[in-house]
């Protein structure tokens, strides 16, 4: 097929498919009203089901629920601010063996997020304690893109409550590209 190729690096990347993208993570705090309020004010989202307990009780939710798009927020790693720019924005120094490392080493140092697909199984309520697992869903063959040659890496994060019930999922896809190959024909 034009614009893509199977190669030695791609074969090595195959070993990561179906494996975790990162370690399992536990939310540092349960879903809580102060963080909901912070979000609601930051985005000026005045949907009353997020903060107005009396009103929310009259809706099908039966009480306050967290804004669904906060799903990722609850489990974000606690950042180490010192040195965060030098780490390229990574919240901490932990390295996990995932397909990004061999791609970076091979010169595919550029990163572009291309797709996000959030699925909400149920809305979260204050007190929900989340944890997550990740899995590499797929890695494309090498593609020629407007940014240069690269590989699309897709992973799925599964969010669960304290009982282990799935509350939501996110599929995330990035392009790892080699900026030096921009305009290359193969």
């Amino acid at each position: 097929m034009a614009g893509e190729a199977v190669d030695e690096l791609r074969e090595r990347l195959e070993a990561y498919v179906g494996k975790p993208m990162g370690p399992p993570a536990v939310a540092p705090d349960a879903v809580n009203v102060p963080m909901i309020r912070h979000w609601v004010d930051a985005l000026d989202d005045r949907n009353p089901v997020y903060l107005d307990e009396a009103f929310a009780a009259t809706t099908r939710f039966g009480g306050i629920v967290a804004p669904p798009a906060m799903l990722q927020t609850w489990t974000m790693a606690r950042p180490k601010i010192e040195g965060i720019a030098e780490r390229g924005g990574a919240p901490d120094e932990m390295e996990f063996d995932n397909p990004i490392l061999p791609l970076d080493e091979a010169g595919y140092v550029g990163t572009l997020a291309t797709n996000s697909e959030l699925e909400f199984v149920r809305y979260l309520r204050p007190g929900d304690q989340l944890h997550l697992t990740t899995e590499v869903e797929s890695i494309s063959n090498r593609k020629t893109t407007a940014l240069g040659q690269g590989y699309f890496v897709t992973w799925v994060t599964t969010y669960m409550d304290a009982e282990g019930e799935v509350v939501g999922r996110q599929l995330f896809r990035i392009l790892k590209f080699d900026p030096s190959t921009i305009g290359a024909t193969r």
């Binding site: 985005l43 989202d45 009353p48 809706t59 099908r60 291309t114 797709n115 996000s116 697909e117 959030l118």
Partner: peptide, 20 residues
Amino acid sequence: SRFVTDWAGPEAMIRKIAIR
């Protein structure tokens, strides 16, 4: 999410946001 629920109202439940 806000854009959609500002239109659909507080009884709306978002099940999926899939964006490129």
